[in-house]
């Protein structure tokens, strides 16, 4: 058995978690979130966390659970509109918040994983987002410098993974997971199906195993945030 495979989320995070650390958590809304690893972080009781994640879950599910227990000191996100507790804790000053434009957030994480300390983008020029940051002209247009994001730990969710940590995501559950897998000092992946090496076609790998240090198979509730349907004709 590969040394990357752990029996469950608690075991996979043993020796990794500590107070005041920075954690990246994959997912968009509740889609593609590492449910099992979030639950294990809640169970561990670590606090003072800085969490980098596009959203903050909803009240009672996903990262919302870590807000309930007040384990999160700061969020770096692009949109938190689904979470009342989040707004409450932020407005009362209990929770620090750094809003990033979604594309800037994705690119900062990608840059972190790729060893690129900063880049320039047009996004946010002339807004609060660019305040205090270096501006520079390229071909007559103004761009703002944004810096990389890296984390002590990245927790990601994939559909299928093998014992070497090669990952395949499914549909829009991919979102931020591939970049976060690259940007964690330690990356722990949870998958719906853990398979032996040789099962996944190497041409179909989304995240190569080099970016994944630990992997578990979990069971997933996969809650739907907005169930929208159409009538059959």
């Amino acid at each position: 058995m590969s040394k990357k495979v752990y029996p469950d989320a608690v075991a996979a995070l043993a020796g990794v978690l500590r107070d005041d650390m920075t954690i990246m958590a994959g997912g968009f809304g509740l889609c593609g979130i590492p449910e099992n690893l979030i639950a294990a972080i809640k169970l561990s009781g670590v606090k003072g966390l800085t969490v980098i994640s596009n959203n903050a879950g909803v009240d009672g599910f996903g990262l919302g659970q870590l807000l309930e227990t007040k384990q999160i000191a700061k969020m770096v996100s692009s949109y938190v509109g689904e979470n009342k507790l989040f707004a409450q804790q932020y407005l009362s000053g209990e929770l620090a918040l750094e809003f990033n434009p979604q594309g800037t957030l994705a690119e900062r994480i990608r840059a972190g994983g790729a060893g690129i300390p900063a880049f320039f983008t047009k996004t946010g020029v002339g807004t609060l987002v660019a305040e205090g940051k270096e501006l520079r002209q390229f071909d007559g247009e103004t761009y703002v410098m944004e810096s990389w994001l890296r984390a002590d730990l990245a927790i990601v969710k994939a559909w299928k993974g093998d014992t070497e940590g090669n990952l395949i995501y499914r549909k829009t559950a991919r979102n931020f997971n591939p970049m976060m897998a690259m940007a964690g000092k330690i990356t722990v992946a949870e998958v719906e199906q853990l398979v032996n090496v040789g099962t996944i076609d190497p041409d179909h790998v989304h995240t190569p195993g080099i970016f994944v240090q630990r992997i578990i198979e979990g069971s997933h509730e996969k809650r739907i945030e907005q169930r929208t349907t159409r009538k059959r004709d």
Binding site: S78, Y79, G81, Y90, P101, G103, G124, T127, V129
Partner: peptide
Amino acid sequence: VKGMGGAM
């Protein structure tokens, strides 16, 4: 306090 998402 919702955030800009991808709008910017």
